[in-house]
Simulated assay, not measured.
Amino acid sequence: MITVELARDLVEAGVLWEPAAGDRFVIDAELLTGDVFWISDLTVEVRSYGGRSLLGFNGTTEWALDSVTLDQALWLPREDQLRGLLGDRLSAVVRTATGWRVDYATGPGDLHSVQDADLECAYARAVLAL
């Protein structure tokens, strides 16, 4: 899973999130970033209110939270979502002795690499480097 810091960097880089079932997120508040939530049609669902996207908590789960606005949530994209953001710029993924290397292209014949101990973090670093 990518780190909260990388997730913040993705937001600052302009990566947009359209919440959907299966997405992971944290509430970007000091005491809550350690708790990962998943959007599900059963417990956390995306709602729209007054033109804003809300993440609604159903039932009595999650400390009686009702909802949070999208700008209070920090998306933790999965491996497949990060691969999708790289698209056809992804050249290779290589297991190394210390983790993972992601090779990507920024143009014809212009290959670059990033590495991280965690595969999803390596993908996120490649997205940020674009």
Rank of each mutant, 00 (worst) to 15 (best):
A122S: 10
V15D: 03
L119M: 14
G109T: 07
F37T: 00
G84L: 12
D41H: 08
W100K: 00
V11E: 05
R83V: 14
S113R: 08
T98L: 03
R52I: 04
G59P: 03
G99F: 04
T43F: 13
G109W: 04
T3A: 04
V46H: 04
D110K: 15
R8G: 01
D35R: 12
S40N: 13
L128W: 09
A64G: 11
L32D: 06
M1F: 08
Y123S: 03
S67D: 12
V26D: 13
Y123I: 07
D28Y: 07
F25R: 00
D28S: 06
A13G: 10
T106P: 05
W75T: 09
D28G: 05
T98D: 08
W17N: 01
E30P: 14
D103M: 05
D116S: 13
L6S: 04
I39M: 09
S113A: 12
E12A: 15
L42V: 12
G56A: 08
F37R: 00
T61Q: 15
R78I: 02
A13K: 15
V4D: 01
H112T: 01
R89P: 02
I27P: 02
R89A: 11
V68C: 11
E12W: 07
V93Q: 10
G56Q: 13
T98N: 08
D116I: 02
A21R: 12
A117D: 14
S53A: 07
V15F: 11
Y123Q: 02
T33G: 02
Q81K: 13
L86T: 06
S91R: 06
D110S: 11
V11I: 06
P19S: 06
D35C: 10
W100N: 01
L42E: 15
W38I: 12
L82H: 09
E62P: 00
T106N: 04
T33V: 15
G56E: 14
L54H: 11
R78C: 07
G34Y: 04
Q115I: 09
W100V: 01
E5I: 09
A126T: 00
L55C: 09
T106D: 12
A29Q: 11
D80W: 11
R24V: 05
G87N: 14
D116K: 01
Q72N: 04
V11P: 00
T60W: 09
V94D: 14
D28E: 13
G107L: 07
V15E: 09
A64N: 14
L130F: 13
W75F: 07
L54A: 05
H112M: 07
V11K: 04
A29M: 08
L55S: 02
E12Y: 08
F57H: 02
A13P: 13
E12C: 04
E12H: 10
